[in-house]
């Protein structure tokens, strides 16, 4: 019998940002694309997000930020994932992220950053094409 692997995603809102429409929309869209999505809710610390990724054995961590905290939180999440030995987790982000910040986030280990108006099927395709071990 073959293993019934499903893509598991943690969708998280780091920091005090209350804009959760994008994160909730994507959580639902990813579920409709056949993924198992854990939505953590608002006000997550990097430690909480990484602990969730560890316990849930996540393939993907999605970070949504619309309040300008991405330059601290996104790299910190990547760093903590590595500390915990979670090297294979794909980290993707989105929200209000100025173009000039994207190169730095990618350098820090964020695989991709998607801004307002991105088609959700584009995000799903990126995840399916880039997760490891599938």
């Amino acid at each position: 019998m073959t293993a019934k692997k499903r893509i598991k995603v943690i969708m998280a809102k780091p920091g005090l940002d209350g804009h959760d429409r994008g994160a909730k929309l994507l959580a639902r869209v990813f579920a409709e694309a056949g993924m198992e999505v854990v939505y953590t809710g608002l006000r997550q610390t990097p430690e909480m997000i990484v602990e969730a990724a560890l316990q849930e054995d996540a393939d993907v961590v999605g970070l949504s930020s619309l309040s300008g905290v991405h330059n601290y939180f996104f790299p910190r999440v990547v760093e903590l994932l590595k500390e915990k030995g979670l090297h294979d987790v794909l980290v993707v982000g989105g929200g209000i992220i100025p173009d000039e910040d994207i190169a730095g986030l990618k350098k820090a280990g964020v695989a991709a950053v998607f801004g307002p108006g991105t088609r959700t099927d584009e995000i799903i395709k990126f995840i399916k094409d880039n997760i490891s071990g599938s």
Binding site: F30, G34, M35, V37, V38, Y39, G41, A52
Partner: peptide, 13 residues
Amino acid sequence: TGGALLGDRIRMQ
């Protein structure tokens, strides 16, 4: 779709 939205963690902060 076979997918799932797992939301219980929200209330387990």
